[in-house]
């Protein structure tokens, strides 16, 4: 028996929007720890990892570990039927091949349930060891989204370089080149507007902009984004989900032939 009640139901809609461009089908894993997912994109270049901790739910009942295979587009179709202020409850019985999403309006005058068929998905879990990163950049998530969008109109790849001076995003394409430098800026009115660079040593890596743009679909989930870089390691782009957990994206770097 599984029953997860999330008062802030719109959060689940945002989580789906943050993943479905990258992943079609995925297994959601429920355990005492929380509601989680790890899935790779079809080209095995990028990976998304989600954790919504059990403490973040108003009610969290998970009698035994359960893995539920869902098509994210179908799940999104169902969640779009929930109002933005609705409370969402996810329910599943042991051994059944479906999951129920229950939507309650805030004043309890409308209650809807949508049952979705589950699917069998061969899950490929990757073991991601903890790593020391050479540079960690924290910046406003809207700024990062803007940079990725702007640069993708010029080129296909971005070189992200971190030095003492700041973080530089560079691209080149048929029509020309572009460089955007964000300097460390801690003296802002609101902490979420700060750009903070923790650098052990300078690092410069090349990534496909198409994937970074997909990651920025998580922007509505968090005011800030953390980008962790090390040479010869995939970049980790993390959006913290307030009081609940995170959505992390891993993207393998490009290498010169």
């Amino acid at each position: 028996m599984l029953e997860l009640r999330l008062v802030q139901g719109s959060l689940l809609k945002k989580v789906l929007d943050a993943m479905r461009e990258l992943v079609n089908d995925a297994n959601f894993d429920c355990s005492a720890t929380g509601f989680s997912l790890q899935a790779m994109d079809s080209s095995h270049v990028a990976l998304v990892a989600l954790l919504l901790r059990s403490e973040g739910f108003e009610h969290y009942r998970c009698d035994r570990n359960l893995s539920m295979g869902m098509n994210l587009n179908n799940m999104s179709k169902m969640l779009r039927c929930a109002g933005n202020d609705d409370i969402i409850t996810i329910k599943a019985d042991d051994g059944t091949d479906s999951v129920t999403f229950m939507f309650e309006s805030p004043n309890q005058d409308k209650i809807a349930d949508f049952e979705m068929k589950l699917m069998d998905i061969d899950s490929e879990h990757l073991g991601i060891p903890d790593a020391e990163y050479q540079a960690i950049v924290r910046m406003p998530s809207s700024e990062f989204a803007r940079i990725c969008k702007d640069l993708s109109s010029i080129g296909d790849t971005v070189v992200i370089s971190v030095t003492k001076e700041g973080v530089k995003f560079s691209t080149a394409g048929d029509i020309g080149t572009a460089n955007i430098v964000c300097r460390q800026n801690k003296t802002v009115d609101k902490p979420e507007e700060a750009t903070i660079i923790e650098m052990q040593e300078p690092v410069s890596l090349t990534f496909a902009l198409r994937y970074l743009n997909s990651f920025t679909k998580a922007t509505p989930l968090s005011d800030t984004v953390t980008i962790s870089l090390s040479s010869e390691l995939p970049v980790v782009v993390e959006y913290k989900i307030a009081e609940m957990g995170y959505i992390r994206y891993y993207l393998a770097p490009k290498i010169e032939e």
Binding site: A46, L126, T157, A252, P253, E256
Partner: peptide, 14 residues
């Protein structure tokens, strides 16, 4: 253009 790495070059399947 640079070659695209695969994630499995870095992380192993578990």
């Amino acid at each position: 253009t640079p070659m695209q790495n695969d994630l499995e070059e870095f992380y192993s399947m578990v």
